[in-house]
Design a protein around this nucleic acid. Structure first.
Lengths: 323, 323
DNA sequence: ATGAAAGCGCTAACAG
DNA sequence: CTGTTAGCGCTTTCAT
């Protein structure tokens, strides 16, 4: 029995003859290794749990690729679950993952300052928040400076001469990223001496489907915007589709800037101006940090990493020409 | 010990007083349930393994949502892995999932007629192929009739008067769906008496990135096509982006039809004409079939379900006007 | 280099 | 209704 275990985990530790004997026996009873038993015995799953808000936004697919690549490189698996932007689901899923004995956790949640942070810190399982902008707190994090991202996106529009700049925002209640980007939007407006018109800020639930109503609300105001900052690329693309339905042209009538730079954004018409996040790298860093904490054991202190973003100017934004 | 187990799994089977006693004890030692131990003991993970070819095509995100919703409804989890269109990875991942004792398997693989089918049938774990068109074989399946889908897409173009119809196909080696759609394309051409020009069929690896070269090859032929059938929406969108780069207008110069009807397709400009697959429903059906087989035990016979697809005509296709 | 045996934390069968 | 106990299949000592 012990020799079989040795054979499987480090064949070189067993004599060639025994090796052969075992190989045959394994063939014979077409034995299949039981990973669960191993996990049970070793208390190590070699698995990292991943919680994402949605599987339909490819930005999470891209970070997940980085994450998986890095995990695989170190012999770890990724167990991914999505919470559909629902904070109750987030807690439930984290509990599930913890019960399943994942060795570490990477997560993007509604509110990294909420109760979930304490739960995670108490659990003693290494965890890192992904995408959020954090500079403190008991749980590590890796992301970009979302506030500055929002500021940069809005500044680009202001630089083009726009004064009626709207924000089509993902609901703050379900995304602290959206809220931080909004903060940046506000700061830009006030820096530029532009008035923040509450009618020009619309929060919508996540999903292309909701862009319709959001854009409608924006464009039906007495004094509609000439530019829209959407808090992610998907919403920006949704907004462009809706503007087109209204007979409006992007960027001639309305400029649009997104956030994330998903691959699709350089293929749509017009190609989308956006803020690029280094998502693949973010995913990699997240597992590195988890593995690092795993190595250090208990006395690991939380780290907060902020990577650089970048404004990518394409065709969906243009300077405001007045008649 | 046993009472604790009872308390956790069916609290009503234990007296209120004992319940309280246990609750306290649990608080006391801040006990966390060990799911792995349960799995080990019961030999049931309550988990369905899911193998998808890529996480970056939202069509798989959509089927996965159906799958997860249905799984959750029955108290099952989904363990998702992606194989990146690599058949070696597929086998490896299936083995991993089997070692992890998943109760059932849902998978989309390069070639459902390949060795993996035998492996699955031998494993004795219920499995169903998703997306592929199968009418026989030891492993159950649910999908649409991809050959007819390809036929319908091409017929739509032929109906519009196009005679030079190209196919931008995902590599056949990594997708039997692409191959079947191509078969339908060929059948339509021959039905219509159109010649099948090998120069008008280009296979590219999966990914938006590869569309560039594919479209280039197509449009640089002596007698370029006036219409392109892409074997999925992502490639169709990539193709439209590339055509635009070449100064060509869709659908004025070239008509484009895709396959899948991902949500994005109704938002891009021009809105994409495509073949809709009932992907959410497909995901649901797949887990139903797995659960069904799980219920029946060994004497379950493979079933092959083909759902209906539908041509959705939007703006990316137009009739051929000759000067 | 190999075999024997304990133990991981749960469930299920059984006895009380 | 509750406690006792065997056992799931691996790894990990510890002898040999």
């Amino acid at each position: 029995m012990a020799s079989v275990s040795r054979f499987i985990n480090s064949p070189e530790k067993v004599r060639a003859e025994t090796r052969e004997r075992i190989r045959l026996a394994i063939q014979e009873c077409n034995y299949r290794f039981n990973f669960v038993a191993k996990v049970f015995s070793t208390q190590r799953t070699q698995t990292i749990g991943l919680v994402i808000p949605t599987i339909t936004n490819t930005v999470f697919a891209d970070s997940t690729r980085g994450l998986q690549d890095e995990a695989t490189r170190h012999g770890y698996q990724v167990l991914m679950v999505n919470a559909d932007y629902d904070s109750a689901a987030e807690s439930r899923l984290v509990r599930h993952l913890l019960e399943r004995q994942v060795d570490g956790l990477v997560l993007t949640v509604s509110d990294p300052h909420g109760p979930i942070a304490r739960e995670l810190a108490d659990a003693g399982t290494p965890a890192v928040f992904l995408f959020s902008t954090l500079s403190e707190g008991p749980v590590s994090s890796v992301g970009i400076d979302n506030e500055r991202g929002g500021f940069d996106a809005t500044t680009h529009l202001a630089d083009l001469g726009h004064e009626r700049i709207a924000m089509l925002a993902g609901s703050f209640a379900t995304s602290d990223r959206s809220r931080h980007r909004y903060d940046g939007y506000c700061r830009c407006l006030s820096t530029r001496g532009l008035t923040l018109d509450p009618q020009l800020v619309v929060q919508i639930p996540y999903g292309l489907e909701y862009c319709r109503e959001g854009v409608l609300r924006l464009m039906q105001t007495a004094n509609p915007p000439t530019a829209i900052f959407a808090s992610n690329d998907l919403m920006a693309i949704g907004a462009m589709g809706e503007l087109r339905s209204l007979g409006l042209s992007v960027p001639r009538d309305v400029s649009v800037v997104g956030f994330d730079d998903v691959l699709m954004s350089s293929y749509v018409a017009p190609r989308l101006t956006t803020i690029r996040q280094p998502v693949y790298e973010m995913g990699r860093r997240a597992v590195q940090m988890v593995l690092d904490a795993l190595g250090r054991g208990e006395q690991s202190v939380p780290r907060h990493v902020i990577l650089n973003h970048e404004l990518v100017v394409r065709e969906s934004t243009a300077s405001l020409h007045r008649a």
